[in-house]
Simulated scan of single mutants.
Amino acid sequence: MENVQNHRPGIPQDQLPEHPRDRRPLSGAVRDLWRAARPSERLCYATGTVLTLSGLAHLLVFAVDGGPWDGPVSWRKPVTFGVSFGLTLIALTWVTSYLRIGARTRNVLLVVFAADCVLEVGGITLQAWRRVPSHLNMESGFDTAVSMSLAVGGGILVVLLSVFAVASFRRRPSGPTGMRLALRWGFAILLVALASGAAMIARGVILTKTGHQEAAYHSTAPLKPLHGVSLHAVLVLPALAWLMSRTAWSERTRNGVMRGAVACYAAAVAAAGIWAAITY
């Protein structure tokens, strides 16, 4: 059993590996997590929830208003970005509690990350309601400002998430059995999402600057599956480790399941990468 005493002080008690047979309802565990959270964590959880609900609300807008699901101008973008950024913010707020970094540093990084998520989703949603592309759109001064702010925000996201990824490898994360493996692989796969996102932006900007605006909008399609699959490993794998901590399974069984889950997730990312290479 991993040493509970190594866990950074201030982490909610329900996140500690107290006993593998914690059979409390999930709603109770979430409620305890909220009660024990610091103000900055509560802000991030609330912000992530609002962003997720915003994405789901735009799914209803799409159902009513219709229009294309694909393409640079569609309701798909506020839906997918709202849900993805919301879930990622909630996941990062939770999983970084297992990282061995200073509390003040973590709080600052999380608040900046939350603000950046709001900027990204807000800009994309605004442009969707204006019926114009959000990314790579240089048609007017305002559109250029929105597009550039999204690009800068993306750069900030890369820096912040890279800091958390490095922290997960510099010092052994705490948590229940399998959490260390889940966190390190989750962040490693997340770096693939950041790299693919940066590649999409870079290629699109180059095509836009050289006068190939329409090609720029469609150039990101091959990398989208890779970006989407790799983005949420940092949520799926730690969530699996936490769920297994609530079972009576042995540590050996849980470690084996986690290694299998990591292998399956890595295979899915590799397949998306191969598809991107073939169709790019």
Rank of each mutant, 00 (worst) to 15 (best):
V112L: 13
M138R: 15
V236K: 07
G178W: 05
A272C: 09
D70P: 14
S74D: 08
T208S: 10
G153C: 10
M1H: 07
G55N: 03
R106A: 06
Y98E: 01
R171E: 00
R8T: 09
A165T: 11
T253Y: 03
S245Q: 07
L26W: 01
L191R: 11
L181G: 08
T105V: 13
A195R: 14
G175C: 05
I156T: 05
V166H: 09
E18C: 09
I11K: 05
Q213T: 14
S147Y: 15
W75I: 01
R8F: 05
A115C: 11
A248Q: 10
D14V: 05
T220I: 15
R24A: 06
R31T: 00
V158G: 03
G155D: 07
V166C: 08
E120R: 14
R130W: 08
V73C: 02
R76H: 14
A221V: 15
N6H: 14
M244A: 04
C264S: 08
R252N: 03
R130I: 10
A145S: 09
R24K: 14
A91H: 06
H232F: 13
C44V: 13
Y280T: 13
R42N: 07
S174N: 00
A268E: 00
T177K: 03
A268I: 02
G153Q: 14
V132K: 12
G86E: 02
R170V: 13
D22C: 00
Q127G: 06
A193P: 13
T279W: 15
M148F: 14
F81V: 04
T125K: 11
R31K: 10
M138Y: 15
A202N: 13
V158C: 11
N107P: 01
S97L: 04
V229H: 02
M179A: 08
H7D: 02
K224P: 09
L51A: 06
G211V: 06
H232K: 08
M138L: 12
D32L: 09
S74I: 04
L53W: 14
